[in-house]
Write a protein that binds this DNA or RNA. Structure first.
Length: 568
RNA sequence: UGACCCAUGGUGUAAUUGGCAACACGUCUGAUUUUGGUUCAGAAGAGUCCAGGUUCGAGCCCUGGUGGGUCAACCA
């Protein structure tokens, strides 16, 4: 039985098919690219990866896997002013953590700077590129508008010799930033703005994280991407929808590359949007820089590192990615699907443990003082092979504060004055007295236990419906629990024109519960270990933990049909 | 007033060469249950943006609309 459950997590073989498969199947049927399928994941190392990148990673590596092809990791590092080694390292860590392997195919666009330069020289010689002396503003003003054609630069018809000379001197650092650019000579009247003599190279006297000060001219994205695809042997260059209008330019460059026995093709898909969060690097960076969250790996962040710290598993993210599919429809996925994916995985794999995050002390008055005993608990009802463990029991225990109500509503199965419930894996207890402080707050419950009910079964066959989790006060591990809610209170914080997205931040996205009691089993756990705190949710140990103050993050709560019914 | 792209239950996706709209999440019942979890059984919810056309037959094809998105960084 347990073996079957484990096999179910292997969903690789049942991936949904999508429109990209159709394209590839067609290419294969036509005998293109000698039947090769080669993709790449090409992040710019200017920030941390988020769940949207995970979709792209799963897609690209997934295609390679499906078609017996390859997938490269490429850092698109053509803009030294924004890129840092810190980001390169975090990206590699995240891709590996998700479970993908680029083997020996790690590339950087900067690996191709010389090739790109040589290619640019060739275009100049073929009279397909020229040096423009005008400043950014002027060039922009000549570009026209989407509905009106642009006008040609006065420098457009320089001689090949002059262009060659000028471009060489740009490379040699003779000019300042902004003084000159290299442009492709295409068509200033094209209905596609990207074809109106796009800029190929700009002067940037910035230190590059890999090439240092070797270059002072850097290629633009459009001039680098397709060519790198070509040189790496990429057959299917998958990117997001906003690059759709760049495709004619992508193809124009690839056309110039001639002598090819194959041709990389750009295919666009819709980027992931999730409810109640933001996904743009700019906005995520803003949240980090302005201290709205505690770093890129804050468990409330949609970053891979944030999700990891929150307690998400690679499997759950991969399954999520598979479930949402791949299309060109610009939509918005409900976070509940992401949450479903972790619950689904953790339900099958997480160690169960009892933990009380909102403690209320219960004294079992007829249990002998000083006595204690061990009770046997199941580690995971979904996986018998995980076995059982002993949980200590004694006279004083903590239960969840909201498992007791003085004046319970209908259908409340838990503890109340004069009521009886089962302590999970333990005894039946009955509440006899409620102690309060002078303000009327409940401070303690006095209960008696049925000593014949060990293990939870009544000796006389009476039915007790309620079951509550508990922790022996004497043996409990005191811990801090961090409980998270959505970062934004609006479903689509980006969807409001003229209102800053930060206006929609949820002020209660983080709740710190400093005094929680967990059964001693968690004493040996390490950061990132997963647990289900029974009846509450999935939690994992946070790296902030110390032996004196273990910290647990609530990954996601269990489904709670009682709480749901109460809201109505 | 241009080019390109998109349009199927609340959400996300399916629907062999056109053949009575399927699945998942979510929602709601009920059963089981020492997790109000899980599991199981079941229900509601779209007639496929609109209008024409082709066809015996259209979510799939054609035409024209409508709505939405992207594009005018020396960003990617």
């Amino acid at each position: 039985m347990a073996e079957n459950n484990n096999n179910n997590t292997n969903s690789e073989s049942q991936k949904k098919s999508n429109f990209i498969h159709a394209h590839i199947d067609e290419d294969l049927a036509q005998g293109r690219n000698s039947g090769r399928v080669h993709t790449r994941f090409p992040p710019e190392p200017n920030g941390y990866l988020h769940i949207g990148h995970a979709k792209s990673i799963c897609l690209n590596f997934g295609l390679a896997e499906k078609y017996g092809g390859k997938c490269n990791l490429r850092f698109d590092d053509t803009n030294p002013s924004k890129e840092e080694t810190e980001y390169v390292e975090s990206i590699m860590e995240d891709v590996r953590w998700l479970g993908f392997d680029w083997e020996d195919r790690l590339y950087y666009s900067s690996d191709f700077f010389q090739n790109l330069y040589d290619f640019a020289v060739r275009l100049i010689k073929e009279d397909k590129a020229y040096v423009d002396d005008q400043d950014a503003e002027t060039i922009s003003s000549q570009k026209g508008t989407p509905t009106r054609p642009g006008i040609e630069s006065p420098f457009r018809n320089r001689s090949v010799e002059e262009n060659l000379d000028l471009f060489g001197r740009m490379k040699d650092g003779e000019f300042d930033e902004g003084e000159k650019v290299l442009r492709a000579k295409i068509d200033m009247a094209s209905p596609n703005m990207h074809m109106r003599d796009p800029i190929l190279y700009r002067i940037m006297k910035a230190h590059h994280h890999r090439t240092g000060d070797e270059w002072c001219i850097y290629p633009m994205y459009d001039f680098a991407h397709g060519q790198c695809d070509y040189w790496e042997g990429i057959t299917h260059s998958i990117c997001t929808l906003e690059f759709e209008v760049h495709r004619p330019l992508y193809d124009w460059f690839v056309d110039q590359l001639q002598e090819m026995d194959y041709r990389p093709r750009q295919i666009e898909f819709a980027r992931l949007n999730l409810t109640y969060t933001v996904m743009s690097k700019r906005k995520l960076l803003e949240l980090v820089k302005d201290g709205h969250v505690n770093g890129w790996d804050d468990p409330r962040m949609p970053t891979i590192s944030g999700l990891r710290r929150r307690g998400y598993t690679p499997e759950s993210i991969r399954n999520f990615s598979d479930k949402i599919g791949v299309t060109k429809v610009d939509g918005m996925i409900d976070v509940s699907l992401l949450e479903f994916s972790v619950r689904e995985h953790l339900n099958k794999t997480a160690q169960r443990v009892m933990g009380v995050i909102n403690p209320l002390k219960v004294v079992i008055t007829n249990y002998p003082e000083g006595q204690e005993e061990m009770l046997s608990a199941v580690n995971n009802p979904e996986d018998e092979s995980m076995g059982r463990r002993d949980v200590p029991f004694s006279r004083e225990v903590y239960i969840e504060r909201n498992d007791f109500m003085e004046d319970p509503p209908r259908k409340f199965f838990r503890l109340g004055p004069g009521r009886e419930v089962r302590l999970r894996y333990g005894y039946l207890i009955k509440c006899n007295e409620v102690l309060k402080d002078k303000n009327g707050n409940i401070t303690e419950l006095l209960c008696t236990y049925d000593f014949e009910s060990k293990g939870g079964k009544s000796s006389d066959g009476r039915k007790v419906k309620g079951v509550v989790h508990w922790v022996s006060a004497k043996h409990a591990v005191k811990a801090e629990v961090r409980s998270y809610d959505r970062l934004f209170s609006d479903e689509d914080p980006n969807g409001h024109k003229d209102v800053d997205f930060k206006e929609f931040m949820n002020p209660d996205s983080l709740k710190v519960l400093p005094e929680c009691y967990i059964e001693p089993f968690v004493k040996d756990s390490k950061p990132f270990d997963h647990f289900q705190f029974e009846r509450l949710g999935y939690f994992n140990m946070d790296p902030d933990s110390t032996p004196e103050n273990p910290v647990f993050n609530r990954t996601v709560a269990l489904r709670d049909s009682w709480a749901k019914a109460q809201k109505k």
